[in-house]
Amino acid sequence: MLNLIRNENMKLYRRPRTWIMFGIVLGLYAFVMLMMHFFTNETMTDNWRDRYEQDRQHLSETLNANGASPGNEQLTQELMKIEYALEHDIPPVHATMWSGVMDSTGFIILVTIMTVVVAGDIVASEFTWGTIKMLLIRPASRAKILLSKYLASFLFALLLLLALLSFSIVLNGILTGFSGFGQPMLTVNDAGDKVEEVSLLGNVLKAYALSTVELIMFVTMSFMISSVFRSSALAIALSIVALLLGYLVTLNLAMYFDWAKYLLFANTDLTQHLEGRPLIEGMTMTFSIAMLAIYFAAFNFFSWLFFTKRDVAS
């Protein structure tokens, strides 16, 4: 099995195309970061204390004037964090290098698209090249060969995600002189009476982890279309259209139909449950995870069925 994955890796990374994908993702990110760095004037790095002093005053006044109103809890927490920050000399996240690192999570969709291309091609290209006839006449079962290709696709995604994360840390570190490199992020505990320090890197990693849900689903979908139809163009085109438009269409459907909650796209964004604003009333984290599991199993089942059972006739 390990040898099969090594083979897939060799075929993947010996093609210039793969490195062009790395170049596109990192290049676009660098471009946006540099534009923001050199063309936005609003730098809070130095005067954040003044800003916070003003905010503190403003918040206290509002709270006093409000008396008991529903928005108070959030404002109180905000105030607690500002006071803690001033007391312990912790600048806000957007005044440190971590701001740009956080922005890199917005580029994970590019990683998803690139991995969709890789996964959509990795089975179909063997058919296009005719090499499938060489690949399948060895003592390795078709199921193992398929699995090795699936795993190689995710290894590519992992590598590209790691490259994006480390590149964003290095780039922003250099741009900001590593300001706030080791500093924590502030949150208020569940009881609402104490400010806690949490790791910023941990928070970034959490954002990365959550975005991989979408990545895994769409890559699995592309892989399935590739194995079923043996066409990379179809697999890549369908998956990218689904990725870009699926959520939008589902959003509109959700306004009129309750069954929209069973669609894949209604469930790929798990933050809707963490933030307590589900797309359709009554959807829960458990529901979404169950739906994702069903889609995941179905996609993989069809990949396996068609790849292992169908004749290689061309």
Binding site: N3, R6, M10, K11, R14, R15
Partner: peptide, 18 residues
Amino acid sequence: EMYKFLTGYQNLMHYARM
């Protein structure tokens, strides 16, 4: 049919690993 973007040796490596 062979992997055209690989060398002859890499192609053989590929099948040897299987």
